[in-house]
């Protein structure tokens, strides 16, 4: 019989604060659900241009985004939690981006990857949307033109912090509703 071998390199998520006893751990729903959500984010890559190629590198074997629980790329907005907007969004594309965002179920988060998605970047021109926050709310901005894969991973980690600490009632509170209304989303 071979002794059971444990993979010691596997890192477990931190146990949230709570009351522990033998065989049980009591904590609040906020914390446990936040932990679960943060470590199993399903990203929706909305890659349009150069940043998309860097995003491909991030997903690739060298940088491996899967290490952070964001392994499952899904291309249908209905199943996803995080919208990763990587690349320039032209005015022609803006309604489509908005449509994709609207199709996502709450709770949903948005990361703007790169200068173009954040602010229009170097393309201060008539055809480019000057930052996606003109059409949808954004949680994390990743700077760079394009950002390095490390930068994109950092953005995801920052988002994980945000998700972990997010209150379950955030999406129903008046401030959030007001924000959504300011974008014309109800």
């Amino acid at each position: 019989m071979r002794p059971v071998q444990y993979n010691t390199k596997v890192k477990l998520a931190e146990i949230p604060e709570g009351y522990s006893g033998e065989g049980f751990h009591a904590t609040t729903f906020d914390k446990i659900i936040g932990m679960g959500r943060a470590n199993s984010l399903w990203p929706l890559p909305f890659a349009t241009s150069c940043c998309g190629i860097e995003f491909m590198a991030t997903m690739g074997s060298h940088y491996d985004l899967g290490r952070f629980g964001a392994e499952r790329m899904a291309f249908t907005p209905r199943q996803c939690d995080v919208l990763l907007v990587a690349g320039t969004i032209a005015k022609k594309m803006a309604p489509i981006l908005r449509q994709v965002y609207l199709q996502m179920a709450e709770p949903r988060w948005v990361i703007a990857i790169g200068a173009c998605a954040s602010s229009g970047g170097i393309f201060d021109s008539y055809s480019v949307l000057q930052g996606i926050d003109q059409v949808i709310p954004v949680d994390i901005y990743v700077p760079g033109c394009p950002p390095r894969p490390e930068g994109i991973i950092d953005g995801i980690l920052k988002l994980q912090d945000l998700v972990t600490s997010e209150s379950l009632r955030r999406r129903t509170n008046p401030v959030y509703k007001e924000l959504m209304e300011s974008y014309g989303i109800d």
């Binding site: 320039t88 021109s125 055809s127």
Partner: peptide, 10 residues
């Protein structure tokens, strides 16, 4: 034309 960025104008 979904990511037309007006290179030539810039």
């Amino acid at each position: 034309g979904f990511i037309h960025r007006a290179f030539e104008k810039i």
